[in-house]
Simulated scan of single mutants.
Amino acid sequence: MKFGLQLGYWMAQPPENAGELVVAAEKAGFDAVFAAESWGSDAFGPLTWWGSSTERVRLGTSVVQMSARTPAATAMHALTLDHLSGGRAILGLGVSGPQVVEGWYGQPFAKPLQRTREYVGIIRRILAREAPVTSDGPHYPLPYTGPGSIGLGKPLKSIVHPLRADLPIWLGAEGPKNVALTAEIADGWLAIYYAPRLANMYNDWLDEGFARAGARRSRDDFEIAASCQVIITDDPATELERMRWIMALYIGGMGAPELNFHAQVYRRMGYEREVDEIGRLFQAGKKAEAAAVVPDELILDTAIIGDEEHVRKQLKVWEAAGVTMMLVSVPGIEQLHRLAPLVDQ
């Protein structure tokens, strides 16, 4: 099982130690470095800037929000990063949620599965560079001939020859239909809030996609990168308390009350009552009370927190569940150095 460093997205200011972490991760044997975006920093810029200090690690987006860019624009970013890095780019894509898609990007959220299939198909054709790219839509028609068109659009082929026509595309997915689609059309799954005890359920979803006609991969050559807080500590209680606040935010506040994909994930794990209560309290502005509702078990279903021996044992559990990469965030260089001996265990 490989390790990836998740830089995440920026908060109020750029992180001060990200460049140091990226270099240290490569030296420690990490396989990849990923950057994310929400509604502030973008995912490609940090990879280009900090990735220029590396020679080996793969550089991935986790994730690029599809509504932020047309498929052609995303393909241009990806092929550019791939050339600059010497073939180390991974294009991680995701639909995000309706609050961001419609509130920030001003795009419709409806039919996310259909949009994802169409979006990935266009990027594949751009990277293949076999012919000028056309698409019948309905979401990303090329050339565009709809309202406002002056009728002069023409099919085009990338001026730049992509370094790799098969540049890997991974999808961030949480629900059963999205995960099955990921197994069908993508090269890897960026799994958030993955719980090893539910591996059989995930495998059912994945197998549905692998079994579809024209599926791109099989289980043998498909990557599963699971985001996971892996924290080596002799004081797990303190870390659990910190994580309680983070989980309350994502379960109770990262999404509309009517549609929160993160909350749905934990409902599938069996935490329906806790999720409802966290959401009720968080939406009422009672964030401390919402955090207090988060049980240790909910956190530890999707995180590894404890001393080095405990972490080593749990990593084996995740690997046995089918995870091919642990995608970890670290607060600083000290924690990365503590993880380093586990990378090649």
Score class of each variant (00 low, 15 high):
Asn260Tyr: 08
Pro98Met: 13
Thr134Gln: 11
Glu274Gln: 14
Thr116His: 08
Ala290Cys: 02
Leu142Met: 10
Thr302Glu: 09
Ser52Val: 06
Arg164Val: 01
Asp207Pro: 02
His337Glu: 14
Leu167Cys: 06
Thr134Cys: 00
Asp276Tyr: 02
Trp49Leu: 15
Gly322Tyr: 14
Leu259Ala: 14
Gly8Gln: 07
Glu241Pro: 01
Ile299Val: 00
Ala215Lys: 11
Trp10Ser: 14
Ser41Val: 05
Gly106Pro: 04
Leu249Ile: 01
Glu55Lys: 15
Tyr119Asn: 11
Pro112Glu: 13
Tyr202Asn: 03
Val230Ala: 08
Met325Arg: 13
Ala303Phe: 11
Gly332Phe: 03
Ser149Ala: 14
Lys313Tyr: 13
Asp301Thr: 06
Ala128Lys: 09
Arg88Phe: 13
Ala68Leu: 01
Leu167Met: 10
Ser62Ala: 15
Phe3Met: 00
Trp104Asp: 09
Met326Phe: 14
Glu289Tyr: 07
Ala284Lys: 10
Tyr119Pro: 04
Leu81His: 09
Ser53Asp: 12
Ser38Lys: 08
His83Pro: 09
Leu81Phe: 06
Ala215Cys: 13
Val275Thr: 04
Arg56Ile: 03
Gly146Arg: 04
Gly153Leu: 13
Glu258Ser: 10
Glu184Gln: 15
Phe3Cys: 00
Gln264Pro: 00
Ala173Met: 03
Gly103Ile: 10
Tyr193Phe: 15
Glu20Gln: 12
